[in-house]
Simulated scan of single mutants.
Amino acid sequence: MTARGAALVARQEIRTRLRTGRWRVLLGVWFVLVNGLGLAFRLALEADYDPGDGHPGVPMFGGVLLGVLVLTLLVTPALGAQSINGDRERGTLATLQVTRLTPGDIALGKLAAAWGSGLVVLLLTLPCLLWPVAEGAVGPGRAAVVLLVTALLIGVVCALSQGWSALLARSVTSVLMSYLTVFGLIVGTPLLFMIAVPFTADRHVGGYTEQHEERVWWLLAPNPAVVLADAAPSLPKRRVVAGDHVYLVSPPGDPLGELSRDVRGLRVEDGYRYRTRDDRPPVWPYGLVFDLALGAGAVWVSAARLRTPLRRVPKGVRVA
């Protein structure tokens, strides 16, 4: 496996994608749709703006980013879920396999092309995401971290989609399984958490029951929204004077910070024992490592399924 071989495959994949004019149209529609929704969200925030609620750029950044994450992960499976079985169905995959390219070159090259397309999709959302940064409502460090995490999550979904493409013979089936995988990460993890919580209950004398979310918090860790929100650096604290006391509190209206505080609070037996987010143990390292491990496993599966000679050809699929 060489970087040069993977780069050759990636360039070929990108050229193939650019030959169809529909990509330009889809990207244009995506740019207008996402940034238009971001602008509408900002106008709605300003229409109901209260100076005591802090800068409207803070909820705009968090809200738009979470929306962009979900929408991007819903678009991403289409970028890689047909990359291998689609070529096999068209009889063009064997052309690559008979060259000196290794299975790893082909797998990584196709992943790089799909991931690069996903990053272009993310890049087109930057106008509405960087608006609060330009205003000074959100620091550039926080923006850089969350964009990096979003880019990694896009790569994970691209790898998982490609893994399904390598495992399944039909591209329609691999696309469906890719979307089900994304659905499982985004929606399935909180559902599984809610189902598991009642099983953690301890029954005490008098019929009193106590639930222990700290025993199953890890079920939420792989959720992309949880990883993104918890990895975001905290916003600078605000000084609040109450009588003779001065308190440092988090700025209001921050969706990322609020989600992070709630999830981190699940890791301790009494979620209110710690008053600030930074005093609570983080969740995002566990979730991100789990997601990256899933992606790495999917890449390994893709390379393994590309090895030749084939022992068995899927029914109804051409080799060349």
Score class of each variant (00 low, 15 high):
61 F>W: 06
62 G>M: 00
63 G>A: 07
65 L>S: 12
65 L>Y: 03
67 G>T: 13
70 V>K: 07
77 P>I: 00
81 A>Y: 02
81 A>V: 06
82 Q>G: 14
84 I>C: 08
86 G>V: 00
87 D>N: 08
87 D>M: 10
87 D>H: 12
89 E>N: 10
90 R>F: 00
90 R>E: 15
91 G>T: 06
94 A>Q: 14
95 T>M: 15
100 R>N: 10
101 L>E: 00
104 G>V: 10
106 I>Y: 04
107 A>T: 11
108 L>D: 01
109 G>K: 08
109 G>L: 07
110 K>Q: 15
115 W>H: 14
115 W>R: 05
116 G>K: 01
118 G>R: 03
118 G>A: 04
120 V>M: 14
121 V>T: 13
121 V>A: 14
121 V>C: 08
128 C>I: 11
128 C>T: 15
131 W>S: 08
132 P>K: 01
132 P>Q: 01
133 V>G: 02
133 V>E: 01
134 A>S: 13
134 A>V: 15
134 A>P: 00
135 E>Y: 08
140 P>E: 07
140 P>S: 11
141 G>R: 12
142 R>Y: 08
144 A>V: 08
144 A>F: 03
145 V>H: 04
147 L>K: 03
148 L>A: 15
149 V>H: 01
150 T>W: 02
150 T>S: 08
154 I>A: 01
156 V>A: 04
158 C>L: 00
158 C>M: 09
160 L>M: 13
161 S>V: 07
162 Q>I: 14
163 G>P: 04
163 G>H: 03
164 W>P: 02
165 S>F: 11
165 S>T: 12
168 L>P: 02
168 L>I: 15
169 A>C: 01
172 V>T: 14
173 T>H: 10
174 S>K: 07
175 V>F: 13
175 V>R: 15
176 L>F: 14
178 S>G: 14
179 Y>N: 11
179 Y>I: 00
183 F>H: 03
